[in-house]
């Protein structure tokens, strides 16, 4: 459905001068710096997949999306969406995709929401029956009814995002690109939107690519995760697999009746944090990860009152990867 092969995108930016004098000098100079926003990205996404596309600020997520939606032409490499090369056949591609940019609306600022939908009906040449069907479906799931007659500029951010999502789906696109759709929303609004996206993916079979900085979005929705770092893919696989791979990131919260002076008898574990007789433990680097065995050993050797095991969240794993306290094995696109 979506295919990227060794995509690269370079930007040239002018070096601005420093200070008033430098700025004056820059009037006449042409120093350029090259930024590799996307640096050899490859992936293949099948119909109906729900993929999370994550990475730090400036990793190149939006740039990739812009290439796949035909806004930008890659410097090298190639991309196909539904068999169409987006940057060569922009308009044909546009008819098959839906796009939401979280920070910007595609609705008509001064018009009531309903009129924006009518406009999109014309633009995407949606048949009246299909339009009515889709409108009914979207407005019941998203509860759009009360908003329909309000001018877009008067909507709250959350309401606007709902309308923007509906707007991007009216023409039943096969692929939906979402660039930070939950940015700035409160917990409840985020949850509503997640439920909606999950439903659309399931019932319409829409292939969805979602960029976000909220790992709860990923955990809830995305079976698959593609992680980007400075323009390169550093992880591409199942979200659960990522969690398993970092299973040794599991934290053991252990409460002792009698606090032992050391844990020398269980060398697999190390102390992360201690609060009185409560210790947070985890597997030492390089140690094997047999959960049951380790807990048994712990209980046998020491006077343990309570043990709980905390699953690592995607959030904490990803944070650790960004902070470089965790590292992924080198990633190869073909493997």
């Amino acid at each position: 459905m979506i295919e990227a092969v060794n995509l690269k995108k370079e930007f040239r930016v002018n070096e601005p001068g420093e200070g008033t004098f430098g700025a004056l000098k820059a009037l006449f100079s042409t120093r350029k710096r090259i930024i590799r926003a996307v640096d050899g990205v490859s992936f293949a996404i099948k119909r109906g997949e729900f993929v999370g596309y994550v990475g730090e600020n400036g990793a190149g997520k939006s740039t990739t999306i812009k290439i796949l939606t035909g806004i930008l032409v890659p410097s090298s490499g190639s991309a196909r969406v539904n068999g169409i090369i987006p940057y060569e056949d922009r308009r044909r591609n546009a008819a098959n995709i839906g796009v939401v940019f979280g920070q910007r609306t595609q609705l008509w600022w001064d018009l009531p929401v309903r009129e924006s939908f009518e406009m999109l009906k014309a633009i995407y040449r949606i048949k009246p029956d299909d339009f009515a069907h889709m409108m009914k479906k979207l407005s019941s799931v998203l509860d759009l009814g009360p908003m329909m007659i309000i001018p877009v500029r008067k909507l709250s951010l959350g309401q606007r995002m709902k309308c923007d999502l509906a707007a991007s789906l009216l023409h039943r696109p096969g692929v939906l690109f979402l660039d930070e759709p939950t940015i700035g929303l409160d917990v409840l609004a985020k949850e509503n939107i997640r439920t909606f996206l999950g439903e659309i993916n399931a019932t319409e079979g829409t292939t969805i690519i979602l960029t976000t900085h909220d790992m709860n979005d990923i955990e809830r929705l995305c079976g698959r995760l593609i992680m980007l770092d400075r323009g390169r893919v550093i992880y591409d696989g199942l979200t659960n697999e990522l969690k398993q791979r970092f299973a040794r990131e599991k934290l053991f919260e252990v409460e002792f009746r009698v606090r032992p002076p050391s844990l020398a008898d269980v060398p697999e574990l190390e102390v992360v944090e201690e609060r009185g007789s409560k210790l947070s433990l985890r597997f030492r680097d390089g140690a094997g990860g047999d959960l049951a065995a380790v807990i048994g050993k712990l209980a046998a050797k020491y006077d343990v009152k309570d043990v709980s095991v905390r699953e690592p969240s995607v959030e904490s794993i990803v944070r650790s990867i960004y902070e470089k306290t965790l590292s992924l094995p080198p990633y190869r696109a073909d493997g």
């Binding site: 812009k66 939606t69 035909g70 806004i71 922009r90 308009r91 044909r92 546009a94 008819a95 995709i97 796009v99 940019f101 910007r104 595609q106 633009i123 995407y124």
Partner: peptide, 11 residues
């Protein structure tokens, strides 16, 4: 960036 919007439409 609003110009991008015109580019993602089939017109």
């Amino acid at each position: 960036g609003e110009f991008d919007r015109t580019l993602v439409r089939p017109l």
